[in-house]
Design a protein around this nucleic acid. Structure first.
Lengths: 215, 215
DNA sequence: GCGAGTAAGTTACCCCGGGTAAGTTACCGA
DNA sequence: TCGGTAACTTACCCGGGGTAACTTACTCGC
């Protein structure tokens, strides 16, 4: 008798803009929950209370949908860029500039952690076991680096050791990827760059007397 | 008349071990060429001169095949770990230890660049346009960071600026990911850790008088 | 009010690619 | 030479991305 036996979900008709933003919201949530590859368009559509072709009407393809989500992120990012640039302009010295930029970056990634995870967390599309394999590589690196830090600087608290270790791992990954784009860089040079920065730091390199504006 | 009109590829029968290693070799190549998602089992099978179910016989699934490749990589990595550890044990001071470790790491990633790219290059499974979006984020960061370095340290050559920028980007990505695992870390703390390392470097933190062995 | 036009939505389908069941071929040892 | 088995094939299933063609409901001019 009750109509909901036949119509369990109250499917409302919506305007294009309304529907679109609802879809984006749902899709971001589902992607973040299950990863990109594991999520079917069917499921997103269902959760929107709508059928699959509607999604295609709005976004063209699964990739298109993801791109639309990323575009939102890009707008936020543009905002970040703007704010950061202004903050940098206010910095009195390079250290201050870096400080402001970093705080903005980390705040941003925290406030947008869902989209950000979608972007940077590779879980998205890789087979589960593979992610494990990748993390194994990192754990191994962690196991190599952290003890050195801990034993050499016993006064550091464990969280600090962890943070430094993460930084070094990130730096290594980035640089070795960079090396594939610049094959002329030898491992020794790569090492030198890495050590210059991680060991000596920028403080010695950047002239503290300069201020941020070029002149 | 000639038999190769009907049998273009000379499909030889092989022993299990022979076939398996051939498959791994081919698969690694094709994955590296086209990415994981874009590669079909059919194509790998074809290039092996064999039919699809053979792949499944050997590896169970597409993910299994990738895992088997990664396992090879893991063995090489174990080798690296061993070599690196020994090198580290020879290091006279922390800097030397880091130096040896880094050279080993970068040499390894270069020598195994194909598998390594497979592992670390996210292209693997993400839609192409998405990769572009991710790279956009990085380019933006690059655009923020590189000018600061360049203007503040004019004596650095461009390659160096690029390297340092890559390191900072890598560090930021890693730390912000780390923050999602440790939500109690504030952006300000994250910034402090990043700056401590990238600005001041480890040299001040690690006591140079300690030698590598704990005692 | 009422029909035309359009935007929102649906059903039913294609096809590709991962994965499998069942059958076929070639090698090897007794 | 013949049986057994390991290497291999054909022919299929099915889930999910993507589309064509059709239907429903709101809106606006008369």
């Amino acid at each position: 008798m009750t109509p909901n036996t036949k119509a369990p979900v109250r499917r409302k008709r919506m305007s294009r803009a309304e529907r679109e933003s609802q879809m984006l919201e749902v899709a971001e949530e589902v992607f973040a929950e299950q990863g990109y590859r594991a999520t079917s368009m069917e499921e997103i559509a269902e959760r929107c209370g709508v059928s699959k072709p509607m999604l295609y009407e709005h976004f063209g393809s699964k990739d298109g949908l993801l791109l639309a989500i990323l575009a939102i992120l890009a707008r936020a990012r543009a905002e970040l860029h703007h704010v950061t640039s202004e903050a940098m302009a206010l910095g009195r010295d390079p250290l201050d500039v870096l400080y402001r930029g970093l705080v903005a970056y980390y705040s941003f990634t925290r406030d947008h952690s869902r989209s950000f995870a979608l972007l940077m967390h590779e879980p998205m599309a890789l087979p589960d076991a593979t992610i494990e394999a990748i993390e194994d590589v990192r754990r191994q690196q962690h196991g190599l680096i952290a003890p050195v830090l801990a034993s050499q600087a016993p006064h550091l608290d464990p969280v600090q050791v962890e943070a430094y270790t993460e930084i070094i791992i990130g730096a290594c990954e980035r640089i070795s990827l960079w090396c594939t784009r610049r094959p002329e860089i030898t491992p020794e040079e790569a090492t030198r760059y890495t050590l210059d920065l991680c060991w000596s730091g920028l403080s010695g390199t950047i002239n503290p007397e300069n201020d941020i504006s070029g002149s």
